[in-house]
Every structure is written in structure tokens, then in C-alpha cells.
Design a protein around this nucleic acid. Structure first.
Length: 326
DNA sequence: GTGTACTTTCAGAACTAGGT
DNA sequence: ACCTAGTTCTGAAAGTACAC
């Protein structure tokens, strides 16, 4: 049983739970990075570490260690693996706080042991209402300009001053766009913060760049823009979890011959995104979808809105997607 | 060409938490 | 309870392109 199969099965198991409002795979943080995040109605969060078949004791012990680490920033922690391995190694998983999930050969999931609530949270993971990155307005080249502005300002500072960094971001926005009203400052900075957070390019605590952030900053200065765009695409697909969105788009394309209008397509897409718990009911997925196709087109993942017979559709450039996520 | 559907860009409304 | 500042989300005008 592959790692991805275990992840898929366990994610589905959480989605089936009425109390769960949001399920995301591998999204939200750098290290240590859980395979699944499940968020409950009251805002409590469970993190899951998944392990495949035939991996050797060492890997299952590492999984236990990761699960323990998750208890420092989430309410519940689970370790999931195939039934066979769970039986072999269960004696080592004696720490009762860690929940255990057993995945059968037919990919059916069983709750082997309920997790208990963490008593050791150091820094709580904030509940989210989206299982995909927040995105508004910014173009790929603008993202690079903003990263550069943040890093330039940071290098000037002896002592961290977040306000000055935000002022630097705003100055950069004013340079990039023709904005009339100062009132927009907060909205713009916020939109930028949320995007960079979700792409995992900066730590919001101190505006320090992550490894991905640094890489993008460097790639963006090259004369050839392709490596930058490719890397940014990877961040959107993996870090911001847009891979799940285009997977659902493909499902829709397979299911329907086409769509009468963009609006029709977006409504159907939004409905499934909520069904699949990629967003909560209170998320305005439709509004998000106003901007998401644009960035996917900029990243060369999505075609234009093309006519086929009487209907229309977006096509997904899977060749490129697969090359980038390798 | 022109009306309509779609895209891009800017603006601000609606929450939320904390203080009094 | 009310105010305020800060955060998050929503709306829509302006611009563009596309079918007819």
C-alpha cells in the first residue's frame, strides 16, 4: 500500500465525519509537516501522519515521533498505517494520546484507538476556513517584487520592525499599481500577507523568508523567467494545495461535455469543493474562484475558456502539472 | 461593428477581539 | 453595552475580448 493511498483513504474517512468541516492534505506548515489536517466544527484540529506498507520499523517509529510533535500545535494527533504493520508495531505505540488508524487491504479505515486531547500545545495552529491558499489580484511578477521589497527592508533593519516592513510593501504596491485611496493600504497588505503565508514563502511572525521564499526571490532575478514561474507553480500546487482544485476541475470535465457559462462552471466547482471539505460552508468559494483561474492561467496550468461545439471548458495542462510535482 | 460574457482592478463592508 | 482598531471577506466598476 502506497503512502498516497493511505493518505487518500484516511482523508476520506475524516470527510465522512459530520463534525469535520475541513480536510486538507499536506498543507499549512513547514516542519514538521503532517499528511492530513482535519478541522472540527468547534475549531479543534487533528493532524495525521500516514505511513505505507513494508517500510521497516525505523519509519514507523519516525511516524510516532512526528505524531508526538504534532501535539505541540494541534488538539489531536493520529498515526495511520496499514493493518498488518499496525499489528506488528502497536506495542511500541503505547503513548495513549496518539490516536491510531488502521487501513485495511481494501482501503477501509478503522479507528484503532481514539486520540486524546493535547495538553502540551506550545503554539496553536489557527483554524482556517479554506483548504487552499487565499489568493487575490497579484500577478507572478508582482509576487516577486513584493518578496524583494520585504527582504530589502529586512536587511536594513537592526531590530525587527513589522510596521516598516508593511510600509515597504505598501510603497511597492503603489509603485506597481495606480491606486487612488490610502484606505486600501490595510486590505492590500492583508491580501498579500495571506497569500505569502499560504504559499509558505514567509513566516508572518517576523516576515522572515522561508526556504521556498528565498528560492523564489533568487529565481525571479534571472533573465529567464521560466524557472521562477515553475517554482511558483509548485508552491501554488503543493503548498497552497491548488492541486486539489484542478483535480476537481478535471472530474467536472470528465463528467460534463462542457459548460454553458463560466458562472455555471464555477458554481458546480464550488459545490464540489465544499462537498469534498476543501472549504467550509461559510467560505465564499465563488468569490475565490473569481481570481483563481487567472493565476492558474498565468502559471500556464489552465487554458483559456474555450468553446467546444455548443459548450465551453477550461483545459488543464497535466503534462506541465506532472512535470512540476514530479 | 456591437452587445454580452468574462476578466481585472480598486474600493469598502462586515466581522472580531479587546478595552472601558 | 459600546467604541475602536485590526483583520477578513465581498462587491462592483472599468476594461477586454469574443461570438454573432
Amino acid at each position: 500500500m502506497e503512502h498516497a493511498e493511505v493518505v487518500e483513504a484516511v482523508a476520506d474517512w475524516f470527510k465522512a465525519n459530520k463534525e469535520v468541516v475541513l480536510v486538507t492534505k499536506g498543507y499549512g506548515r513547514g516542519f514538521p509537516s503532517p499528511d492530513i489536517t482535519a478541522q472540527f466544527r468547534q475549531g479543534k484540529i487533528a493532524l495525521v501522519e500516514c505511513k505505507p506498507s513494508d517500510a521497516g520499523g525505523r519509519e514507523y517509529m519516525t511516524g510516532l515521533g512526528q505524531s508526538l510533535a504534532y501535539l505541540t500545535f494541534a488538539d489531536f494527533s493520529y498515526l495511520a498505517m496499514p493493518e498488518k504493520e499496525l499489528n506488528i508495531y502497536q506495542k511500541y505505540f503505547w503513548i495513549k494520546e496518539i490516536g491510531l488508524l488502521s487501513v485495511k487491504e481494501n482501503l477501509e479505515v478503522q479507528l484503532f484507538r481514539q486520540a486524546t486531547e493535547s495538553k502540551v500545545i506550545l503554539k496553536r495552529e489557527e483554524p482556517r476556513i479554506r483548504g487552499y491558499g487565499y489568493y487575490r489580484d497579484l500577478r507572478p511578477s508582482e509576487i516577486h517584487s513584493i518578496l524583494r521589497a520585504i527582504q530589502t527592508e529586512r536587511n536594513k533593519q537592526l531590530r525587527l520592525d513589522k510596521n516598516k516592513i508593511e510600509n515597504a510593501i505598501w510603497r511597492e504596491v503603489l509603485r506597481l499599481r495606480k491606486i487612488q485611496s490610502q484606505k486600501q493600504k490595510n486590505a492590500w497588505i492583508l491580501n498579500i500577507k495571506l497569500l505569502l503565508r499560504d504559499l509558505q514563502l514567509i513566516n508572518l511572525d517576523d516576515y522572515s523568508l522561508t526556504e521556498d521564499g528565498f528560492r523564489l526571490l533568487q529565481l525571479g532575478t534571472l533573465p529567464d523567467k521560466k524557472p521562477y514561474i515553475d517554482e511558483l507553480t509548485r508552491c501554488f500546487l503543493i503548498n497552497a494545495n491548488y492541486l486539489d482544485i484542478i483535480t476537481i476541475m478535471q472530474k467536472l470535465n470528465d463528467q460534463y461535455i462542457g459548460f454553458t457559462t463560466v458562472q455555471d462552471f464555477k458554481e458546480k466547482l464550488a459545490e464540489i469543493m465544499i462537498e469534498e471539505k476543501l472549504a467550509t460552508e461559510r467560505t465564499n468559494v465563488i468569490r475565490d474562484l473569481q481570481d483563481i483561474p487567472r493565476i492558474l492561467k498565468d502559471l500556464n496550468i489552465l487554458s483559456d475558456w474555450k468553446k467546444y461545439g455548443l459548450n465551453y471548458r477550461y483545459n488543464i495542462n497535466w503534462k506541465r502539472v506532472l512535470a512540476i510535482i514530479r
